[in-house]
Write a protein that binds this DNA or RNA. Structure first.
Lengths: 342, 342
DNA sequence: AGAATTCATTTGAAGGTTCAAATACACTAC
DNA sequence: GTAGTGTATTTGAACCTTCAAATGAATTCT
């Protein structure tokens, strides 16, 4: 059972009795080929199980058909699910547009850029997707300098003025909604638990809370800490002591810590006056209301931008897209009291 | 600023005044080239920023330099972190061995196989990594039939006798350790909360608990449910009512639900007599003891097996590797009571 | 000195595809 | 009957690399 040689356009052509170019046309520009010839070629292709060689095609067209992306090390698993969803959605969107996703690892941003640029020079990828853009992120400039098309999930924070494509979720709008919802439920003293202001994303989310209250609140009830469950708990206690009857949080991890602090205010089956961010599985599991990011939509938008960018390497000016998150409300239920249904 | 044409071996060769093949040799078999010539070529390569074309190389060598892998949709985020770690480690290991990771999406197993085989026929990937092998998984047979080298993370469960490469973690050894630890701490009635026996992985983990108690326990204190937090809580209550003073769980999600049920038995700062599986971030956050899988090691082993398989497409007979997990013990601390340190 | 051995480099070809241009053919128009 | 307009197909070249074999030059052996 020696496996017969891989079929090629040449072998198909010989079989059908046409030229190689005709086979190529059947695949890439079927409208150029006479219907009768076309179907004969198509039949031979199917019969032989022929698939165009990616290498041959890439060599000729100077087009890899792949997009590079860094897989970050797992740091904070509790909201890593947003990234999981993003990766999955990006892979799907890329597949739909005829691109594959190529994974890279790197210890830091410069190494990431080096990997991506290297892969681009080798013709392995046509473009890259950047994730988790930080304050004054150096990567956009470096990639632009290397003429590597890219699009980012996360807006450009800070003053670096590289103009590029990006998609982001309006965190401010999310916390704004959350705060308004609590206000409508009758709360007048609503706290915010967030991250230090050095975090651009954290500051954005804080702004939404601030904005929603506008003049209502002279002395803001806020506490900024690290993103740990225990920090959330401690911050919640402090805010409650200062008079807060509800809190909006910059993450589900913080909200998760805050939950027990406000649990005595309500009866099971009601909404807890604690709202998280990212709508992680943990939030679903424990009945925590949370702000849901339209991750799948964001992924599709990023890929679309990048594809456009690849199509017109120079002409395409970067553009930003902002998506609005939604508020996912949940009834809190004491886990211990409930029984399984099935 | 028209970007100059991409450097090639030909352009380098012309510059230095040697033949193309010599440039190729400097890159692939430096020992064949006289040191002086070599360094001149190397200098030119660096100066031009030359990188071998992946397409040209792939076309000639019939070797893609990439491995395919399906990115599963996010189903159960609470222990998805194990997969995150696995992906990251695989990417790293692959990179170290000169392979890239190519991501695929698919709605089900047949589609996954079709994608992988298609990519292989197109010369996009040299092999594949399978994740989460289920009972009588059809994929190994299909891939073997398609002559696509692969290795699996997860052993072959069931009777399908395809002989192939795989790496797995000894779940039984994990729950065995956990149970023994609880026994050593003085517990005599130790319950098990797991999944229905239709889950091969769940059954494996149950066996470890069973084995550790051997003759000690005539009537086994077990409850098998779905993998939800609330199910874990309900099961824990039932087992405690039946006399259990400690429980071993098939997952952190179940253990997380069980925690409050046993919380009154100990003082803060002690180990809770509840042990989970997978050592997820949630476990770390709430101070839950859990069984830690050597994921990074597993990933490296899978990649190594696959690389070997690709090297000898036919000669290599599949082999299984079993890794032993470790028990990660934690002191439980009431989240509400603690204050942030810094 | 001529043959045999080793080392360094070059030559020719092939791998599969697509682009740009050329050819062949059928048909309409004058 | 020749020029002109399409449509369908083919030709030749190029994309970049590496394999297998050949050449050239220097060294050693008999």
């Amino acid at each position: 059972m020696a496996s017969r040689p891989r079929p090629t356009q040449a072998s198909i052509a010989a079989q059908v009795g046409v030229s190689i170019q005709t086979v190529s046309n059947v695949i890439n520009s079927p409208e150029l080929v006479k219907p009768e010839t076309r179907s004969r070629v198509e039949a031979a292709i199917r019969a032989a199980g022929y698939r165009p060689s990616a290498a041959g095609r890439a060599l000729r067209t100077r087009h890899a058909g792949a997009i590079g992306m860094r897989l970050h090390p797992v740091v904070d698993g509790i909201n890593g699910e947003v990234l999981d969803r993003f990766f999955h959605a990006v892979t799907q969107a890329a597949q739909d547009q005829g691109y594959r996703i190529n994974l890279f690892t790197a210890p830091d941003a410069p190494a990431e850029v080096e990997n991506l640029v290297g892969a681009h020079q080798a013709g392995v990828i046509d473009g890259a997707i950047l994730i988790d853009t930080g304050l004054n992120d150096p990567r956009p400039q470096l990639l632009t300098g290397a003429h590597l098309p890219f699009a980012a999930f996360g807006r450009p924070w800070g003053e670096l003025s590289t103009r590029h494509s990006w998609v982001d979720v309006d965190g401010r709008a999310g916390t704004y909604q959350a705060t308004r919802h609590l206000m409508a439920a009758g709360h007048s003293r609503i706290g915010f638990i967030g991250w230090p202001t050095s975090s651009a994303v954290g500051e954005d989310r804080r702004q939404g809370w601030l904005l929603a209250q506008a003049e209502a609140e002279p002395e803001p009830l806020q506490a900024l800490t690290e993103n740990q469950v225990r920090d959330g708990a401690a911050a919640a206690m402090e805010l409650r002591a200062r008079g807060a009857s509800a809190v909006v949080c910059a993450s589900d991890a913080l909200a998760f810590g805050a939950m027990p602090v406000f649990a005595d205010l309500i009866e099971p089956g009601q909404e807890l006056p604690v709202i998280g961010f990212d709508n992680t599985p943990v939030a679903r599991a424990v009945g925590l209301s949370s702000v849901e990011q339209p991750v799948e939509q964001a992924a599709a938008a990023v890929v679309a931008q990048l594809a456009e960018h690849i199509r017109q390497p120079d002409g395409f000016l970067g553009q930003g897209v902002i998506l609005t998150p939604t508020l996912e409300l949940r009834k809190w239920e004491s886990m211990v009291a409930s029984r399984p249904d099935s």
